[in-house]
Design a protein around this nucleic acid. Structure first.
Length: 119
DNA sequence: CTTCTGACA
DNA sequence: TGTCAGCA
């Protein structure tokens, strides 16, 4: 149910499809890649292949731009978001670590995280 | 036919 | 950003 992440990672969409899915032009999509905002893979023919996650990121960029943010601002958000995720992951590992160290076999469970695309 | 890179009236 | 060239 959540392992679709593996599927969402698969780069199977050519730029043409991404164009219609994001309303962006090929020019803009390639430009954003140069700016490090998306990382499409390349197929045997050197053609860019995008994943659903790439499309989500691009759509988010479109929204941020419509919100008046510059690409520089969006880059900063991308970095801040990544840093926050790392901190969150670290905390998660720490918590798991602690619970494993002094494990009390029968205790209240922990909560799972749901979906979430932060601003 | 679609996409790629590089360049610029 | 658009657009055109010349390839793949």
């Amino acid at each position: 149910m959540e392992e679709d992440f593996a599927l969402r990672r698969r780069a199977v969409l050519p730029i043409g499809t991404v164009m219609s899915l994001t309303t962006l032009t090929a020019r803009q999509i390639r430009y954003y890649e140069n700016q490090g905002l998306v990382h499409p893979q390349r197929n045997a023919g050197n053609h860019r292949m995008y994943s659903l996650i790439d499309v989500d990121n691009l759509i988010q960029i479109v929204r941020d731009r419509e919100a008046g943010l510059s690409l520089a601002d969006i880059k900063r958000l991308r970095l801040a978001r990544t840093k926050h995720q790392r901190e969150t992951d670290s905390d998660a590992r720490q918590v798991l670590q602690d619970e494993l160290m002094n494990s009390s076999p029968f205790r209240q469970g922990n909560t799972i995280f749901g979906q979430g695309l932060r601003p």
